[in-house]
């Protein structure tokens, strides 16, 4: 399982275009790192600080009214993640089906479950590197620049929320992407369908919401659902109504993920039946 994940990551890191996306993720991290540095280390006028906070919607405390900064960071990073995943599904999974590499894997001393777990781990690692790990680095940075142990101790829930939200992003996105790639296999269809899945239902949900004034239609947007689940972990909602929606979102995302996983298990097999 580990070797499959390691090889998959080597494949991604060998493609130069992916470095551009990884660079974008890094740039965003540096920006947030700089914001924390500016807010905590530089003697800036209050007005400037307020402007920065407003611009980034940033709060590093659990009990403040503003959005949690770590959550905002992870949300923004997930845009980069989605683009990266849209283009890496074909390389990581689709090529195994196109070039009939599955029998190569499955004729070795591994079972189907090892293959699937390896691929999910690879995709999860990409998401982890771009969201959870830099968010944790920001958490460490903020504590180190402010009150150190006291900050980390008082805000341990942020740590848990980052890990939990990151876990949801990793699990959901990896299962969805690997399943989609196993069926579509080629880069263009995967990228188109992946993007459409994350954009079109959202647009439709928003239209139906406005037309019927029923907020539940917004659950059609899987990206927003994941955001709501994140807000559930961070304990902060932009609207009170969102708290109820978040549980429905969790239910919906879980159901889709289970269906996608079953479809993936059915798709991965060493033998193609030729009639």
């Amino acid at each position: 399982m580990i070797s499959i994940a390691r090889v998959a990551l080597i494949q991604v890191l060998r493609r130069k275009t992916y470095w551009v996306l990884l660079g974008l993720g890094l740039a965003q991290f540096i920006m947030f790192w700089s914001v924390i540095y500016a807010l905590t280390q530089l003697q800036l006028p209050d007005q400037v600080k307020q402007n920065i906070l407003r611009e980034f919607g940033f709060s590093a405390q659990m009990d403040e009214q503003r959005d949690n900064g770590y959550m905002v960071f992870m949300e923004r990073q997930s845009v980069v993640v989605m683009i990266l995943l849209a283009f890496s599904g074909s390389l990581l999974v689709g090529s195994d089906f196109r070039q009939r590499t599955l029998p190569f894997y499955l004729s070795r001393r591994i079972a189907k479950r090892h293959y699937i777990a390896g691929k999910l781990l690879a995709v999860s690692s990409l998401i982890l590197f771009l969201t959870v790990i830099p968010a944790l680095a920001l958490f460490v940075e903020y504590g180190a620049f402010t009150s150190g142990l006291t900050y980390w101790r008082d805000n341990w829930r942020i740590l848990v929320a980052v890990l939990a939200y990151g876990g949801v992003l990793c699990l959901v996105n990896s299962v969805w992407l690997v399943s989609l790639s196993a069926y579509l296999q080629r880069a263009a269809p995967i990228a188109i369908i992946w993007s459409s899945l994350l954009i079109m239902p959202g647009r439709l949900g928003e239209y139906l919401w406005k037309a019927s004034d029923n907020e539940y239609w917004r659950l059609l947007d899987p990206w927003r659902d994941m955001r709501l689940i994140g807000q559930l972990f961070f304990g902060k909602f932009r609207k009170d109504f969102d708290r109820g929606l978040a549980w429905w979102g969790l239910l919906l995302i879980s159901a889709i993920t289970i269906v996608a996983f079953i479809a993936l298990v059915r798709r991965v097999r060493a033998v193609d039946v030729v009639e």
Partner: peptide, 11 residues
């Protein structure tokens, strides 16, 4: 086992 297909891993 040596499969008939290309069975390569890109890159």
């Amino acid at each position: 086992y040596m499969p008939e297909a290309a069975a390569t891993v890109p890159l």
